[in-house]
Design a protein around this nucleic acid. Sequence first.
DNA 1: TTCTCGATTGTCT
DNA 2: GACAATCGAGAAA
Length: 200
Amino acid sequence: MGLLPVEFYQSDAVVSLAQQLLGKVLVTDFPAGRTAVMITEVEAYEGPIDKASHAFGNRKTKRTATMYHSGGCAYIYLCYGIHHLFNIVTAPAGVPHAILLRGGEPLEGIDIMLQRRKMDRLAYRMTAGPGTVAQALGLTTKLDGQSLQGPNIWVEDRGIQITPEQIKAGPRIGVDYAEDHAQWPYRLWLKESPWVSRPR
DNA sequence: TTCTCGATTGTCT
DNA sequence: GACAATCGAGAAA
């Protein structure tokens, strides 16, 4: 229970860590108010050996530098010039693993999230997909590199138990350019949850 | 400095 | 089902 400690993020077994993140609660606290979602869908990116990762082959640039930080901070970047995608950096410093948040179940600050998404009523699509969850939570590239120990962003364990039977795994989305690596079953989601992105 | 293209989404047909 | 929107990182020159 409670705030996940930095040690949680230090493992370099990124897929296993991604499984453990399902059912945890991601909280953001900005001037607009506090918002929280239970994590229902993630994708693992195994830095150096993963063609779909920005850090494939240990490529290190200004943008990817964040992924080489010690586990427990946020990696946020702009995609298609429009969408801010939120990742959780994992593994010890120097190992560029990351986990992409793709879906969540709204728990707190739903009115704030609706406002950010410019929606007037709650619908599953509010937080289905990496770009939309990040928008709902108010996450932008300005927050790249932020600690996940607070005060603005953190992850809590609220005692929600997830069993292996509740987790489904499949190929990742939107990474066809990575050829064979796109087929790796690094996309994980909660089988029973409606708060996940629609399969393409 | 210039050029290409993306870990996506929403809208129109 | 098809496609435009939109901008900065990364690569080439």
